[in-house]
Structure formats: structure tokens, C-alpha cells
Design a protein around this nucleic acid. Structure first.
Length: 270
DNA sequence: AAAGACACCTGTCCGC
DNA sequence: TGCGGACAGGTGTCTT
């Protein structure tokens, strides 16, 4: 679920409901996520939501005395529900507000985390080394080119490195490389400035489009109804190994890069 | 310092 | 229908 556009969509979905609300109660049913849920959340008194924001794939709920940091891992979800809604398996935490709504965290694989930070948030070890936001001006062709020049690794690994640029996951890396017509197997240092410019533009375009579509799982967008934008949100390569390239009919290749399945077109992508 | 392997955990799907 | 194995949208940590 959680790629940057979905985290952004989650943010936009929960923010209006919880902003300015006072937390009445926090219920933890399963403390063991990637790390144990921070102790202060287990015996939480009461505090008010001052701001809700996103940095990379982290959601930040700023209270007056601290900040709740949430990462959705591979399978995490956040939903706003009525306080009456009975919990199901994998519903690990509820934050209950004075308006009788709850923010419920669900995560079957438990690769996500929920931490309570009392110090300067941006100095936290999980956030301090993150690269620029992909949609910011700081992420540009010159920036990527200068980093890439010194790297021996494959370009796909580079753009998935959260210290280089945040928010690009396995789907978007593959799709952006296809859109930029660059092979994921290329050494990062072999890219020209022009190719870096194409790649940066492709990443921005695809992430923006996905956010516009509500960040819903890309896999869910499949019905070919001819609506504007349909073409752009289609997955060209991700999950399509051994199928025909939509553009040139070549059979798409699949290989592992840094233990992640990577699909590409050996004709369109050079 | 950088790059690759591995670990974490559960659910689903596919072939036998 | 059951079982084993491969695989899944992420990323910190350990090892080279």
C-alpha cells in the first residue's frame, strides 16, 4: 500500500478529522511492530493535535508535548472509523478523539512503526539522513547527476535510496525508468545529465499523477474506460514480466535488483 | 564510505 | 483439500 502518494493520500484523508482534536485515549493491542510502540503511548494521558504532516513516507502527528511518528511499512493502513467499530485481527492501535472517531492502525506484516518523539523531530535518526522530497526543487537533474557520477550501483537502486530522494518505491522506480526510457540495470554513473533530467521529470510526473488519482493502489486502476488520465496511471512494467510492452510489443524482462523484482523493456529502455 | 545480503512477519497464490 | 515454496508496495542492520 504505502508508497509516497498513498502516504500523502492518507495524510489528506486523516488530517481534517483529527486536526485540533484532543486525544481521549490510545489503545494498543499489539505492541510489537518493527520496533515496540513507544512506551508513552501505552499510558497516554491527553493531548491535542496541533499539526499533521508528512516527511518522506513518514506521517507526523504533532501534539503539544511530542510527536507521533507513523510508518506504514509494506502492509500498514490508517483509517478513520467510529469509536464503536470492533477491532479485527491486525488492528494494532487505536487513537480515540473527543469527536468519537478513532484513527486505527492496521498492519498484517508489522513492518511499520509507531513512535513517540519528544525531541526535535527532524533530528531523529530515522529522519535526519533523508534526501529531498521528490516534488521539491531540491530534487533536480543537476542534483541527481552529481550524486550518480560517484556511484557504482545500478540506477534503480540509486533512486530507491531514501538518502538520495525519498518516496520512490519499487513500483515507481520501475515505472519512472520506463517513462524515462532508461534501463534499470544501467550503472548510475553512466547516466548523462540529459538522462538524469529525463529521469527526474519522469519521477515527478508519475508521483504527481498518482497523488492526483488519490494514491490508490496502482494495481486497482485497471478498468479501461477511456477517461482522461487513464493512460498515465497505467502500469507499464510493474507486475508485467513476460508480457508484451504496450509500446513496442517486446516481451518484458524481469530481473532482481537489490532483491527486488524489476521489470523493464529491453527495447524501449536503453 | 558504499554496496549488497539479510532480517523482520503474515497473507496469498500457484503447482503438485 | 492440503502442503511447500515463492512472492509481496520497506528499510534498518550487519557484513564485506
Amino acid at each position: 500500500m504505502p508508497e509516497l502518494p498513498e502516504v500523502e493520500t492518507t495524510l489528506r484523508g486523516i488530517r481534517p478529522t483529527i486536526l485540533g482534536q484532543t486525544i481521549k485515549k490510545i489503545t494498543v493491542r499489539q505492541q510489537q511492530l518493527r520496533w515496540p510502540i513507544s512506551k508513552p503511548l501505552l499510558s497516554f494521558k491527553e493531548d491535542t493535535v496541533l499539526e499533521v504532516s508528512r516527511r518522506a513516507k513518514y506521517l507526523l502527528i504533532q501534539l503539544s508535548l511530542g510527536t507521533i511518528l507513523i510508518h506504514l511499512g509494506m502492509s500498514g493502513r490508517l483509517r478513520i472509523l467510529s469509536a464503536m467499530t470492533p477491532p479485527k485481527k491486525h488492528d494494532h492501535l487505536d487513537i480515540e478523539f473527543e469527536n468519537n472517531k478513532i484513527l486505527r492502525y492496521t498492519d498484517p506484516r508489522r513492518f511499520g512503526c509507531i513512535l513517540y518523539l519528544e525531541d526535535e523531530v527532524n533530528q531523529h535518526r530515522l529522519l535526519v539522513n533523508l534526501g529531498p522530497e521528490p516534488l521539491s526543487k531540491d530534487f533536480n537533474s543537476r542534483y541527481l547527476f552529481e550524486i550518480a557520477q560517484n556511484r557504482k550501483q545500478k540506477i534503480k537502486s540509486l533512486i530507491m535510496d531514501q538518502a538520495v530522494v525519498v518516496g520512490v518505491g519499487n513500483i515507481y522506480a520501475a515505472e519512472a525508468l520506463f517513462a524515462a526510457k532508461i534501463s534499470p540495470l544501467r550503472a548510475a554513473k553512466s547516466l548523462s545529465l540529459i538522462e538524469c533530467a529525463r529521469l527526474v521529470a519522469a519521477i515527478k510526473k508519475i508521483l504527481k499523477e498518482a497523488i492526483k488519482q488519490g494514491g490508490t493502489t496502482l494495481k486497482d486502476f485497471s478498468s479501461p474506460d477511456g477517461k482522461p488520465g487513464y493512460f498515465l496511471q497505467k502500469l507499464f512494467v510493474y507486475g508485467r514480466g513476460k508480457q508484451a510492452c504496450y509500446l513496442c510489443k517486446t516481451t518484458l524482462k524481469s530481473s532482481k535488483i537489490a532483491q527486488r523484482t524489476t521489470v523493464y523493456c529491453s527495447t524501449c529502455q536503453q
